[in-house]
Nucleic acid binder design. Structure first.
Lengths: 165, 165
DNA sequence: TATTGTTATACTCTATAACTATA
DNA sequence: TATAGTTATAGAGTATAACAATA
């Protein structure tokens, strides 16, 4: 039997990057429709609220670092939340470049309303998974997130080299 | 001991919708940087190319159904690919509303170049996962994608009811 | 010089609406 | 009436660049 030329092939519906993308979009948009319907929040506002609810008081820089958002995205979300009375902005006298941000009582109330909604939403998505599979999911997503960062860094290096060459 | 008021809390970094979103973005953007650097493709062009490479010949409607893209997104990606000589558009004489789309040799060459790149990229992301975990990943993502569709549908119904009320 | 944060601007992806052509 | 596809337009999310204020 002759050696065959293996024509490359790829099934999109089983290709991991595609599957993750579709899954994450579906999940994200469904959840977003919940907090958007109640409070008109987009993802950035929700993430800022969730981060401040979790940590209490922090700078815009730290919110961005924790919630993986660009500083311009954080800046605009914070401005919106401050304008609507959900978030308080306090100057840091020790470093006037930055400001401490925290939830006002009104923002805490929104947080207390949205967290159970978000938690039960996540539970509905994983409903039917065995506890073994839930544990595996945590572990595997951790691993993939870690690998994805590494591969992303490697690719940035490779393309930088190619551009230099 | 008194019954405590359980203040709601949520850790963003372990919250599944957030984790999926960050993971899918990192993976998607890294892969996109590969085909964008070589051919200037965005995600829609890549998906159209991948779908035509997989199925050979199909209508824009079927491309959209298979790759989960809106018809306007497909339309623009196809127009771009036709304009650059990667895709051929043939009228369907049996139904002149639609057209059959397929890869030209030049488009097939791009596909043959990109598929190994995409495949090895996906392999780099899952590197280090045991074969058990890889199987679990497939199974769990299938399950979550299915659940996410169901939950999304339920939420659309619920919010429609609330709007009516 | 470097960092925090804001603003202007632009780009990608997606979606709605209005439309043409066809069934 | 319904469907395939195109185009105009708008929205969300994200990013770059330029900038002001501060360290």
């Amino acid at each position: 039997m002759e050696t065959e030329v293996n024509a490359p092939h790829l099934r999109l519906e089983t290709f991991l990057p595609y599957r993750l993308n579709v899954l994450a979009s579906t999940v994200s948009e469904s959840l977003a429709s919940l907090y958007s319907a109640r409070y008109g929040f987009g993802i950035p506002e929700w993430r800022v609220l969730a981060t401040l609810g979790q940590f209490g008081r922090m700078t815009a820089r730290d919110i961005g670092a924790h919630s993986r958002m660009h500083k311009t995205t954080v800046s605009r979300a914070v401005t919106a939340l401050v304008g609507r009375g959900y978030v308080k902005r306090e100057a840091n006298r020790a470093d006037m470049r930055e400001a401490f941000l925290s939830l006002r009582p009104k923002g805490r109330a929104v947080y207390d309303d949205l967290v159970p909604t978000a938690t039960s939403f996540a539970e509905r998505v994983v409903a039917g998974l065995s506890s073994e599979d839930r544990a595996a999911l945590e572990r595997i997503v951790d691993h993939l997130a870690h690998r994805a960062e590494i591969v992303a860094g490697e690719i940035r290096l490779e393309t930088a080299k190619e551009r230099a060459a």
